[in-house]
Amino acid sequence: MRNTVRGALVAVALVLAPAAALAAGGEHIHYDRQQWSFGGFSGQYDKAQLQRGFQVYKEVCANCHGMKRLSFRNLVQPGGPEFPAEAVKALAAGWSNKIVDGPNDEGKMFERAPLLSDPILGPFKNENEARYANNGAYPLDLSLVAKARTIEPTAPWYTHIFLMLRDIATGYQEAGPDYLYGLLTGYVDPPKGFQLADGMNYNSHFPGHQIAMAPPLAKDNFIKYQDGTGSLEQNAKDVSAFLAWAADPSLNARKRIGWQVMLYLIVTTLLLYLAKRRIWARVAH
């Protein structure tokens, strides 16, 4: 009995030692995996969700964050929110962040309203101006944020190889949106005794737990949609999906063509294999 207990303790220590080494190197935050319409092999974006997500972006995020790698015309093209062209043209014409154009005949640069072909700019001309207006913090461009963020596994090291194989087998590429959703819903009260620096906000899902961005969405401050629905969680979900599309607009075509290619390859490999056996049947073995 005593040996079994000792053995169990040793086993536990062996398990925890590498995990402890991991923790010593930096805490890994756990992020819940969400259900996304565009996840997995047959995933596709939900047009309505992308439209709601754009609404959240426009009314909340666009006050500080630009999306300069997106053009207004992207909001019209298939595979995305697919807004009507006239609506987007009007939206662009009324967009408060103007395009710098010129020089005109007088030799001066001037500002003009964006066209469909122009990028969706944020309120700051460059990173320096953005930092200056935000106490040194940089409201980054959101075009690629859903691909520029990932999640580290929190499970013990010896499970990692199985987690990797699981992710490859299921086609998991939604770590970015999972992170964003966790972040946007992670503005909670700090635990007792947590030292929050001046001007920072506590976020359970931000590495280091202190983030300069004030909560963009809150339980009592969120976007209500046209049909009356809306909540913090729904806003967070929809805008994360919209940002996922912004970073990867070709997903719909990619996964659709992917199915066709995989089917073709599997059939052809099988045919080639049978043909190979047919040919090799001539050779004794």
């Binding site: 691909k147 590429q173 992917g258 290619v261 390859l265 599997i266 490999t269």
Partner: peptide, 16 residues
């Protein structure tokens, strides 16, 4: 072609 199955798996479903 068997190798291409693996190749296509990543190209179309796990590109990053």
């Amino acid at each position: 072609f068997a190798f291409l199955i693996l190749f296509a798996w990543f190209v179309f479903f796990l590109p990053d």
